[in-house]
C-alpha cells in the first residue's frame, strides 16, 4: 500500500468499525428475533470491511484498541448512540446510501481501493435495501412509528454534511456523491411519507469534524468500553 492511502483507509475503516460496534449493541435487544439476525449480519459485514481497511494501515487491533479518541477518523454520524429502532434505521439509511455511492465510484475507478470497494459494494447494497425497507415501514406504518422515524431523521440530519467533505486520498467526485445522496435519500423519505429535514447539515463545530478527530461525547464512552479489556492487559494476545 502506498502511504498516501493511509488517511483514506483509516477514515473508511473507522466508519465501518464504529458503526459495526454500535449495531453490535443491539444484540439481545432487537424488536423482533428476525431483526437480531439482520442487524448482526450488517454489523458483521461492516466489521469485515473495517478489518481489511485497518490492516492496510497497520495492525488492526493496535489501531482499534490503542488509539485515543482524537486519533479516530470516523464520521460523527456513525458514532451516534442507537436511540430507538427508528434512529438506528435513519443512521443506517444515511450512512449506507453514502457508503454505497462512495464505494460504487471507487469500484468503478482504478485506484488501490477498487477491488475492496467492489466487494463491499454488494454488502452495502443489502444494508441500504434493509434500511430503505424499514424506513418505508416505519415512516408509512402507524402514527407513532411515523413520528419516531421523522424524529430519527431530523436528529441525525446535522451530522450528514460531514459525509461530503473530501477525504484525503479518496479519489471520487464529491459533488456528484452529494447530489446522488440527496436524490436517493430524498426519494426514500418521500415514499415513506416523511419530510426531508430542513435544518443545516452541519453545525459550527461539526463540519468535517469526525474526519479531523473531533468527536461527540458519547463516542468517548463507547471506545472506553470497547478498549478497556484490551488495554488492561498490555502486550497480551487474545
Amino acid at each position: 500500500m502506498t502511504a498516501a492511502l493511509a488517511p483514506a483507509a483509516l477514515a473508511l475503516g473507522d466508519d465501518a468499525l464504529v458503526l459495526s460496534h454500535r449495531l453490535g449493541e443491539w444484540a439481545g435487544h432487537a424488536p423482533v428475533l428476525e431483526e437480531e439476525v439482520a442487524l448482526a449480519n450488517i454489523a458483521l459485514d461492516l466489521l469485515g470491511q473495517a478489518r481489511i481497511l485497518l490492516s492496510l494501515v497497520g495492525d488492526e487491533d493496535e489501531l482499534a484498541y490503542l488509539r485515543e479518541e482524537r486519533a479516530f477518523r470516523n464520521l460523527q454520524l456513525v458514532e451516534q448512540p442507537n436511540g430507538d429502532f427508528a434512529q438506528t434505521i435513519a443512521r443506517q439509511l444515511y450512512f449506507s446510501t453514502y457508503q454505497g455511492l462512495l464505494y460504487g465510484q471507487l469500484a468503478a475507478g482504478d485506484g488501490e481501493l477498487a477491488p475492496l470497494a467492489a466487494k463491499a459494494v454488494k454488502e452495502v447494497a443489502y444494508h441500504q435495501d434493509h434500511a430503505e425497507h424499514w424506513t418505508l415501514r416505519l415512516g408509512d406504518g402507524t402514527a407513532e412509528s411515523h413520528e419516531r422515524m421523522q424524529r430519527g431523521c431530523d436528529t441525525l440530519w446535522r451530522f450528514t454534511g460531514e459525509m461530503f467533505q473530501p477525504v484525503e486520498g479518496v479519489d471520487v467526485d464529491w459533488q456528484k456523491l452529494e447530489a446522488g445522496w440527496r436524490e436517493s435519500v430524498g426519494a426514500v423519505l418521500e415514499r415513506a411519507t416523511l419530510t426531508v429535514p430542513e435544518g443545516p447539515q452541519s453545525g459550527a463545530w461539526s463540519a468535517g469534524a469526525g474526519r479531523q478527530g473531533l468527536h461527540t461525547e458519547p463516542f468517548g464512552r463507547m471506545i472506553a468500553e470497547m478498549q478497556h479489556l484490551h488495554r488492561s492487559h498490555p502486550g497480551a494476545t487474545w
Partner: peptide, 26 residues
Amino acid sequence: WITRAPSLRRKAILMAKVQDEAGHGL
C-alpha cells in the same frame, strides 16, 4: 461481551455466534 471483545477477530466470532443463537431460537 460483544462490545468489550479484546480483538477484532474475537469480536467477529462472538457476534456471529450470538447471531446463530437467535437463528437457532427461530
